[in-house]
């Protein structure tokens, strides 16, 4: 059972996407509207068949071993998929039955999950009386109920208040530590993307970049080091001659761009003969990364209904083609 590698191998479904995700990894999927995020997830969840290529989830082929895949994954969709006329507990129980959670284990699993999402008091209330945020929290609890090995989260915290988001993320981290659950996330919150072990940026059905958030940011270019000294003119002179870098005077401080800012800072102190009053290293943000690879600002890509439509249109287009 150990040594299990989750491989989402080569598939041409969207446009020749191929990558693999390690067990226990938190993998993020970023992309503008209609880029193919939801489509890719639908294929991985066996809701859509790939036109060409193969994909394996939790070691199972998404086409030939569909039920095995389904039993191993949890899903939290963008849209609500609860039964309004059932209570929260009934929705969870229904899910547990379909995923073969033993009835004896159910209360022990349900209660901590309901606690996590703050719905314990509401367990026996019908879902139609819930607010949008409560419904989403219940969906997340449901997605985790059968302790899936891979959890797909398609914009999971959209429309949630910051407190609930933090809550959910704490639990997600805990779960990852304890159960080695692999998480596959699409999001447009940069702070959530930052939490990922690795991020894939997808655009027009292709993966344009895939790496750790830090490496992606490094790929954008240099870090910005800002420093204030007792004698800026002299410091600038010393830095120029020592590192042959360009030093700009900006807003009463010195600014220079270097590839690895954090490693560069100690070297500054070896060179400078003047006192440094403050120093700051700013790395490129994921916004910069996104802009570089897609040519668009992440704000344009904010998920909305349009992504769903766009990817549905794409699906239809393949089927016709």
């Amino acid at each position: 059972m150990d040594g299990l590698v989750r491989r989402f191998g080569e598939f041409t479904a969207v446009d020749g996407i191929g990558f693999s995700v390690e067990p226990g990894e938190l993998f993020g999927f970023l992309g503008p509207n209609g880029a193919g995020k939801t489509t890719t997830i639908s294929i991985l969840c066996t809701l859509l068949n790939p036109t060409a290529g193969t994909a394996r989830v939790a070691g199972y082929d998404v086409v030939r071993q569909r039920d095995r895949v389904r039993a191993s994954i949890g899903l939290v969709f963008q849209e609500i998929t609860l039964d309004d006329y059932l209570t929260a507990a009934e929705n969870l129980r229904f899910h547990a039955v379909m995923y073969g959670v033993p009835a004896a284990e159910l209360p022990g699993r349900m209660e901590p999950l309901l606690d996590m999402v703050g719905l314990r008091e509401r367990a026996d209330q019908q879902v139609r009386f819930f607010s949008g945020g409560m419904k989403r929290r219940l969906e997340i609890a449901r997605g985790l109920l059968h302790t899936p090995r891979v959890l797909f989260l398609d914009e999971p915290t959209i429309g949630l208040d910051p407190q609930t988001r933090t809550h959910i993320w704490d639990y997600v981290d805990e779960l990852r530590g304890r159960e080695q659950t692999t998480m596959f996330l699409t999001t447009h919150y940069m702070d959530e993307a930052e939490r990922c072990d690795r991020i894939a940026i997808i655009d027009r059905g292709r993966i344009v970049a895939i790496d750790t958030p830090d490496a992606l940011k490094a790929s954008v270019g240099a870090d910005t080091v800002t420093l204030a000294t007792n004698d800026d003119a002299r410091a600038a002179e010393e830095l120029r001659s020592a590192f042959s870098v360009e030093v700009e005077h900006r807003k009463g401080a010195l600014e220079l761009r270097v590839p690895d800012g954090e490693a560069f800072v100690p070297r500054i102190f070896d060179v400078l003969t003047v006192g440094v009053t403050s120093i700051n290293v700013r790395r490129p943000s994921l916004d910069d990364v996104f802009l570089k690879y897609t040519g668009r600002d992440i704000r344009d890509a904010e998920a909305g209904a349009s992504e769903q439509f766009a990817s549905n249109a794409m699906i239809r287009a393949w089927r016709r083609g």
Partner: peptide
């Protein structure tokens, strides 16, 4: 319309 069908269709049943 309300998505519950999807919840059932992705289950391993």
């Amino acid at each position: 319309e309300f998505g519950f069908l999807r919840e059932m269709l992705v289950a391993p049943v």
